[in-house]
Design a protein around this nucleic acid. Structure first.
Length: 584
RNA sequence: GCGCCCGUAGCUCAGCAGGAUAGAGCGGCAGAUUCCUAAUCUGUAGGUCGUAGGUUCGAAUCCUAUCGGGCGCACCA
């Protein structure tokens, strides 16, 4: 239930009636008219820019138009005051019972309050993580994983039919490297002394269990084969084992994908060939020579003709190679096929979540989807910036060298999935982020995870104390939804309801912008408003939530904080963070 | 050399696709605990929104240029 949308609909109806009366032109574009909370609450409860936006097409100045509209807006049920301010804002003040009814409505449908239908059941594909199956996930993957999952949940809440997808890069040369590394571990498991792992192979211990498993199922049989013989088998086994590791890591963060798409399968099914043939038919592929990059030339640069995609025709800066020197498809080529595959599965709205180091590929990928879909599909690519791990105020050093990188699992084990998730989401995705092990587990308001959790737990505690103080009183959600709320008129308490009222529009705008961090900030604000209210009871005992001698007032306030708690929990659920009932 | 991201209070960051006097936390200063968890709250000081132009009723937000920081830059994934 988006109250702002409700009043916007009412506003539009009033504008229409003015048009029918001939007091406004019949043709007006209302698309940029907004109804929002004013920046300063003293201005009113809702503000619209209608008079400013429509002034020119209506042939009036904003103040004149506002004067024309104001009397009509006063007739909207629930509006008790209309005033015109600034350059032509129209501010609406709403009756107390609007807020009282809204609170009752929230309580009658705690889970459904934030839900929106702006997605209208449209399918959207969110591809995230997509780490190469060469080992366990490391911290670098963490942010994209959490972001993608929260974005998916957010879109789900906004009425989209979301598919969480993982693209398995199981076709490249690095798979051979894992396979060969695993083969060494296999020999090791059979008792051989393999010595140092050679340069260029993966030295990680995580391949040992795979080696042991292979030794168990195959015995020494694989030793008799030449590389041609064992490599395919080791490839498959490695991919399976590594994906199992990765799924496990993801599960530790509470993440589950709906679909795992294999790059190798794409090739086997001939989908790369058909996708590229389609581009070819459209004349978007040609053989040409690229200009060498300006500035410092790559060591082994050679000027030669290449098979190129005409990316420049779709907004990219240069045309992009589709074939390597040896004639095989580039990664980009199979990525085109992959995005076409998603399109063929019905996803005209696609979102990719990438690390910052891939930012340079955004334009080409969007160009490609534009070309292959005939501009019928959209691809938004969200970039997650670097996370810097900090310990004792110092960045944690990580080198690519043996064993010296921090895994996702280590971080989750140390601070917990909830903390990891919240911290990752308490920042805009394209801003870099310091993750300080000490700070994120600190129990103080400086730590936003704690601060929000504390608000939730505090409410749980009040509800428990209330039950003790008023035995026999029904305090179930259903009972609270029927509480007489006409007592609710305190400015600060109504203020909390007004913040609750914004939740649905926060969901909608966050979903539209593909920015889950907005939800994190919103519930932080909500928690802050609650803590403020709580503390008023310190100064004035009559403002405490629990008033044993005044059951009506108590129930009213319980209703208020229960709704607050539910919205916090709902927001946390989108972020994938478990709300706690008590702090420890 | 080109492209992308970032530049907002001393520090860390928001700013709801152009709106009213630019917000929050930390840090500074001044306060609130016989009482629902003070693990919290209240007040106060602090900003030429990197700089310069432009677009219009109106710009932190859009456009151009410029400075500073990060990332990427044929054939790896």
């Amino acid at each position: 239930m988006n109250l702002f949308k409700h009043f916007k609909d009412e506003l539009f109806a009033r504008i229409k009636s003015l048009q029918l009366d001939g007091r406004l032109p019949g043709e007006l574009d209302l698309s940029s008219v907004t109804v929002e909370p004013p920046r300063d609450p003293s201005h009113g409860d809702m503000a619209t820019n209608a008079a400013m936006v429509l002034a020119r097409p209506a042939g009036l100045n904003p103040r004149q138009l506002a004067d024309l509209m104001a009397p009509v807006l006063r007739t909207i049920p629930g509006v008790v005051g209309v005033n015109i301010a600034g350059p032509g804002f129209i501010n609406l003040r709403l009756a107390e019972n609007v807020w009282q009814q809204l609170l009752a409505l929230i309580l009658s449908d705690l889970g459904g309050f934030g839900a929106s239908d702006i997605g209208a059941g449209r399918p959207v594909n969110v591809e995230f993580v997509s780490a190469n199956p060469t080992g366990p996930m490391h911290v670098g993957h963490c942010r994209g994983a959490v972001f993608g999952d929260a974005l998916s949940a957010l879109l789900g809440r906004a009425g989209y039919k979301v598919c969480r997808e993982y693209y398995v890069n199981d076709a490249g040369a690095q798979i051979d490297v894992v396979a060969k590394s695993a083969f060494l571990r296999y020999r090791e498991a059979l008792g051989e002394d393999i010595g140092e792992i050679p340069e260029g192979l993966y030295p990680g211990e995580y391949l040992k269990p795979l080696g042991a498993a292979l030794a168990k199922t195959h015995g020494a049989a694989l030793l008799n084969l030449d590389e041609e013989g064992w490599l395919p088998l080791l490839r498959d086994a490695s991919i399976d084992a590594m994906m199992a590791l990765i799924r496990d890591d993801l599960l530790a963060l509470g993440i589950r994908h709906d679909v795992f798409s294999s790059e190798a399968a794409l090739h086997r099914a001939g989908k790369v060939d058909t996708a590229l043939a389609e581009l070819e038919e459209r004349g978007q592929i040609y053989v040409g020579v690229l200009e060498p990059p300006k500035g410092k030339l790559p060591e082994d640069w050679e000027e030669r003709p290449q098979t190129l995609f005409r990316a420049t025709a779709f907004g990219d800066d240069v045309d992009r190679p589709l074939k390597k020197a040896d004639g095989t498809w580039t990664y980009f080529a199979s990525d085109i096929a992959y995005h076409k595959d998603k399109l063929d599965r019905g996803f005209t709205e696609q979102i990719d979540v990438w690390g910052a180091d891939h930012a340079g590929y955004i334009k080409r990928m969007q160009s490609a989807l534009k070309a292959i879909s005939d501009d019928k599909a959209t691809l938004d690519i969200k970039i997650c910036q670097l996370v810097r791990l900090m310990r004792n105020g110092e960045p944690v050093k990580m080198s690519k060298r043996k064993g010296d990188f921090i895994t996702l699992r280590e971080v989750v084990d140390e601070v917990g999935a909830d903390v990891v998730r919240f911290i990752m989401l308490f920042r805009k995705n394209d801003a870099s982020l310091d993750f300080d092990f000490a700070k994120v587990t600190e129990q103080s308001k400086e730590n936003p995870v704690f601060y929000v959790q504390y608000a939730h737990a505090r409410i749980a505690s009040v509800l428990k104390n209330a039950a003790d103080a008023m035995p026999g009183q029904d305090m179930s959600d259903r009972a609270l939804a029927r509480v007489n709320l006409t007592f609710l008129s305190d400015e600060a308490e109504l203020g909390l309801v007004k913040i609750l009222a914004q939740y649905p529009r926060q969901i909608e705008s966050a979903a539209e912008a593909h920015e889950p961090h907005r939800i994190a900030f919103y519930i932080h604000d909500l928690a802050s408003a609650f803590h403020g209210l709580w503390n008023r009871g310190k100064d004035d005992p009559r403002l405490r939530f629990i008033q044993p001698e005044r059951p009506d007032a108590t129930l009213t306030r319980l209703a208020l904080i229960r709704a607050t708690q539910a919205v916090i929990a709902d927001g946390l659920a989108i972020l994938g963070v478990t709300p706690v009932q008590e702090m420890r």
